[in-house]
Simulated scan of single mutants.
Amino acid sequence: MVKIKIKDLGMTKAVEVKNSIKNKKKMGIVQLALLKEQDDTTDINTPLEEVQQGMNLIQEIEDFLIDVLKLDKKQVEKMEDLEEEQLGMIVGEVIIRIQGASEKDIEDYYKERDEESPLAEEKD
């Protein structure tokens, strides 16, 4: 179990997220959608299919974060105001935290890229 608090969503306290089978399934759905979006070996999509695939990906990410982090209406509104890159960073870090990445692994990742984590670490 990991405690997660996302400052960009105005979360004032951390939520406990289990590394449960249910959450692993939800993570898998998001990861598959992300990989499908990045897969350029599939048949060339029409512009309509491209837009639909992008919208489906965003919806999968939003559904995952809403469910796993138990976001309220205000937090969902804040999430919808984020840029796509911010949303991607948040879902990526939530997934690696649930999968058990250590705090040091995460710090090193952001340090190498000279970036700041979108999550506010909850210290016990």
Rank of each mutant, 00 (worst) to 15 (best):
K18A: 11
M55P: 00
L35I: 06
K7N: 15
I4V: 02
M79P: 04
M1F: 04
P47E: 14
K78H: 12
I98F: 13
M79E: 05
N23G: 10
I98Y: 15
K104F: 00
I95G: 10
M55V: 14
E50P: 00
Q53E: 14
M11R: 02
G54R: 13
V17Q: 10
L57M: 09
L87K: 14
K123E: 12
K73V: 14
I21E: 15
L71S: 08
E116T: 14
N56S: 06
P118A: 02
E121C: 03
I6V: 14
Q75L: 01
A120M: 09
D72S: 03
K18L: 05
L87R: 11
D114V: 13
E85V: 15
L119E: 00
K123Y: 05
K25H: 13
D108I: 01
D39C: 02
D43I: 10
L35E: 12
E122L: 03
L87A: 11
A120P: 00
K36E: 05
A101L: 04
K123M: 04
I21T: 15
I58Q: 07
L65K: 09
E122N: 12
K26Q: 10
M79Q: 11
A33V: 08
I96T: 07
E85W: 13
K13F: 11
R97N: 07
P47F: 15
G88R: 07
E122Q: 13
E37H: 06
S102V: 08
M79D: 02
D8W: 02
D43H: 09
S102G: 04
E122F: 08
V76L: 01
G92V: 04
D114W: 05
E116L: 11
Q38T: 11
T12K: 14
I29C: 03
D105M: 15
K70F: 03
R113L: 14
G54I: 05
E80Q: 15
E37F: 05
I96Y: 08
A120V: 10
I61Q: 10
L35A: 11
E80C: 07
T46P: 02
L48G: 10
E103W: 00
K104M: 05
R97G: 02
M11P: 08
Q86R: 14
Q31E: 03
V68W: 03
E103R: 09
I106E: 00
T12D: 13
E107V: 06
F64G: 04
K22M: 07
L82Q: 05
D124R: 09
